[in-house]
Design a protein around this nucleic acid. Structure first.
Lengths: 234, 234
DNA sequence: ATTTCCAATTTGTGTAGACTTTAATTTTTT
DNA sequence: AAAAAATTAAAGTCTACACAAATTGGAAAT
């Protein structure tokens, strides 16, 4: 047989299932009918039901286990997906003009706290790059970054006056793992100076560690200008 | 035909494709072979290739367009998925003991800023609930929440001394849309008092607005204790 | 009573093939 | 040349079916 305008699509099934959960017809923790039964109800194949339920499980509404069946999650673990944009895109999406400026860059032995953080040996050195991202002439983000030279030897030839370290890294080395944190920190004299705010002011701060197949690649601290908020809708 | 231990699974295809992207064999912005060609290469059906590529596109590695084909995204828009846990789970996951305490609750006319924020009419009133979440005896989060009574009339009967407003809402009303923001704020006298820190201290702060089919349900501000970081790995 | 083993059930994934939808491209018309 | 229409290539989705894998729950053995 073939699909036609009256077949039930996996989208319809997703909608219906969600509606039933929301209406309370299918209570939290309760078991759904199995795929075969739903296929009969929706007059479609099990394949189609499978896709619908699989996606709903991915989205955090359902929990599925072989033999045990599919159940409604009591506290829907809806996952907020924050797309981590490049600073340039973020500024331009706000309708601003992105501008980048290098503050300093140079090779140094990895400081102790960084060695500990990235599991480096005592003789490894790092490229330390500090830079600013502007929206027009307004400071947008101050970035303090360390790049592990052993993991990215090409970094010796990079010209961070011309291109930001993040953009350079993205087009130069792939990565396999990322750890990303956000916190509220207090502006020290350096950060306050670059972001043009009083010392001690709260600063929304991100930390990012990137690995390639177990090798640490880079550690970055990103300090956002006053009033920054990270927002998502879902 | 049927699958056997030597068939190529969609997982294998995902791995291979990723490896080719990472190795530079498939450059950013370049076009992949079409599904049919890849199906031949991997000796599997187009269905299987389709699933692999579809998932990679979902994960932000590829961009797919009918007729135009599949191309490698130049700046992989890897989406960080922050699972937004319930406070209780977050505390317990740290190995702590969760404790909840109501600070105050009562019905009031919606303040102007909230009316604007949630598009309420001037005569709508809200349930204002303030409460604390502890890890043992250590303050973990101070929550300041408003619930739109017209959207959730049952709130009149809720006993927020016994159950936190978030947990109550989750088991009482479904939601369809959420806006979630994070920012760094400065502790005012109230927040500082509840979180046991000096006035003016940076505070990691979350704001959450929830709707049900276009109807605003609740607005919550969550102030996290000193040192809090929101972390994800991917 | 406890542990071990086996069978049954349910989801997971693959094959093969067809029709559908989107949109880039080419051709035709104006 | 520009605009409109037709073509066509690619992904999107569905059917129908089969075997695979996990895990639960009961039966058997200790």
């Amino acid at each position: 047989m073939t699909q036609s305008s009256d077949t039930t699509s996996y989208r319809d099934i997703k909608e219906t299932v969600l509606a039933r959960i929301r209406s309370g017809e299918w209570q939290p923790d309760s078991l759904l009918p199995n795929e075969q039964e739903l296929a009969v109800e929706f007059s479609c194949t099990r394949t189609t039901v499978n896709r619908a339920l699989r996606e709903l499980a991915d989205e955090g509404y359902l929990e599925r286990r072989r033999k045990a069946g599919t159940r409604v999650l009591s506290a829907p673990q809806r996952q907020a997906r924050f797309t981590i944009p490049m600073v340039r895109d973020e500024v331009e999406a706000m309708g601003g003009t992105y501008r980048y400026a290098l503050v300093s860059s140079g090779v140094e032995p990895a400081p102790d706290w960084l060695r500990a953080r990235l599991a480096l040996t005592s003789d490894q050195s790092v490229m330390h790059v500090r830079c600013m991202h502007f929206n027009g002439n307004t400071p947008f983000q101050y970035e303090d970054r360390w790049i592990v030279i052993d993991s990215v030897p090409q970094v010796a030839d990079a010209d961070f006056a011309a291109i930001g370290p993040n953009e350079w890294l993205i087009q130069t080395v792939p990565f396999t793992n990322v750890e990303l944190s956000f916190l509220a920190s207090r502006a020290d004299k350096t950060v306050a100076g670059f972001l043009d705010l009083p010392v001690g002011e709260p600063v929304f701060t991100g930390e990012r560690i990137t690995w390639l197949e177990g090798q640490p690649v880079t550690f970055a601290k990103m300090y956002f200008a006053a009033g920054y908020r990270m927002t998502t809708q879902f």
